[in-house]
């Protein structure tokens, strides 16, 4: 992925910053500019909110055939996680054996290296999750 495209999203990827709609109190992650519930009424009313990064596994998979960027990590666990604030996201679960992962398992976020643009390229960082 091109460097500017990755860099633009770093605040959210580094610090789990989402947005909260001041009109209906719904929290979103990744950040949104329009609330899908309030539409027009939400314009200008979405404010940044830091998520705690704790939640549970909704579903998961162990990836055995992955993109080049993740080759060295194979097999790795991907999951959809519901954070306690109610938002869901897709992330890797690390420091967890393939046979340990379960739906409903409690997890918390951790700041890790995600990948790099080739051998001499920029290193990307962001969230992964570990057992809570």
């Amino acid at each position: 992925m091109a460097i500017p495209r990755f860099w633009r999203e770093t605040p959210s990827r580094y610090n789990l910053i989402g947005t909260k709609c001041k009109n209906c109190d719904t929290i979103y992650f990744p950040p949104r500019l329009i609330c899908p519930k309030c539409h027009r009424k939400s314009i200008g009313k979405l404010e940044p909110i830091k998520l705690k990064g704790e939640g549970e596994v909704i579903t998961y998979t162990v990836i055995h055939d992955g993109p080049k960027q993740f080759e060295m990590q194979i097999p790795y666990i991907m999951a959809i996680i519901e954070l306690d604030e109610g938002v869901r996201l897709t992330a890797q679960i690390v420091e967890c054996e393939s046979n340990e992962i379960k739906i409903g398992m409690r997890v918390k976020s951790t700041f890790r290296k995600l990948g790099e643009d080739g051998k001499a390229g920029v290193i990307h960082y962001g969230y992964k999750f570990i057992k809570a």
Binding site: I58, I63, F70
Partner: peptide, 24 residues
């Protein structure tokens, strides 16, 4: 790309997560 693939989710991986949840 920015909120699924960048973290390592493949197209098969996303469908695998649907399958896992359907089984559950």
């Amino acid at each position: 790309q920015e909120w699924e693939s960048v973290f390592g989710a493949t197209f098969a991986g996303l469908h695998a997560m649907i399958a896992r949840r359907h089984m559950h």
